[in-house]
């Protein structure tokens, strides 16, 4: 049984038909990259998984259980974390508080939090600082920490390199690589080489549906089937 399966998912924003029969599977332990141009439905795929934008038809199964129609907070409680585009920190909350929001009330807070601080030593230094005062890279680290804290099994990461300086991007990539050893990951990334580098497999998306997929090994941007969909 795959960890995550999307079958013929159709999602709309108002009247706009964004996902037009999305099919994909994610196996436990994998890193899967979703690539494609802007506006083809990558972010919507993540939102559909979380039921933030509920699909109109089709099914999203996590460990074999259908998620469609469940409220987002229940979906998240099953062990799915989200690192959204633009990070969406709680800017007026401290680093500690940002993590605290993501930890279930019935979980032990301290060990989980310390685990994150071990993973991201920068965050430990600024634990009392309000998140809006962190640098972009630190905020991205916090967003990732917030996404996995509490032993989430699946992490949905949306554009983690966007708006960051190259040096910082490298740090974020390293962090994601480390996270990926323990957590299954679905990665939406515009930076093609980076996505190929991090992911085991890729899905190429166009017009709300998968047009190509396969292992990332040996795939380059010159590849003709990739070129056709990625070039502007």
């Amino acid at each position: 049984m795959s960890l995550l399966e999307l079958e013929d998912v159709h999602t709309y924003y108002g009247e706009s038909h964004i996902l037009q029969g999305m099919n994909l599977t994610v196996e436990e332990g994998e890193v899967v990259a979703l690539i494609g141009r802007n506006g083809v439905g990558k972010t919507t795929t993540l939102r559909s998984i979380l039921q933030l934008t509920a699909p109109r038809s089709g099914s999203v199964r996590f460990r074999g259980e259908d998620l469609t129609g469940n409220p987002t907070h229940e979906v998240a409680d099953r062990g799915i974390g989200w690192v959204p585009e633009d990070r969406r920190m709680f800017g007026y909350l401290t680093v500690e508080e940002n993590l605290r929001v993501a930890i279930d009330p019935d979980q032990e807070v301290e060990p989980l939090r310390d685990e994150m601080f071990d993973l991201f030593p920068d965050l430990a230094r600024f634990r009392e600082k309000e998140a809006r005062n962190l640098s972009g890279g630190q905020q991205q680290m916090l967003a990732i920490a917030r996404g996995i804290v509490g032993d989430n099994e699946l992490l949905l990461v949306d554009e983690p390199s966007e708006g960051l300086a190259p040096l910082i991007v490298e740090q974020v990539v390293e962090a994601l690589r480390e996270v990926s050893t323990e957590t299954t990951m679905v990665l939406v990334e515009q930076n093609f080489p980076l996505a190929m580098d991090l992911a085991d497999r890729f899905y190429l998306i166009d017009h709300g549906t998968v047009v190509e997929s396969g292992p990332t090994e040996g795939v380059t941007a010159d590849d003709e089937r990739i070129q056709r969909y990625l070039a502007a």
Binding site: P71, H73, A76, Y92, L93, V101, A102
Partner: peptide
């Protein structure tokens, strides 16, 4: 804890929901 959720929710209720809290 609820005060924390309320402060977080005042900034971004959808994000709070996505972190597993019934907003």
């Amino acid at each position: 804890l609820y005060g924390l959720y309320i402060r977080a929710g005042s900034e971004d209720p959808e994000m709070v929901e996505a972190l597993g809290i019934d907003v």
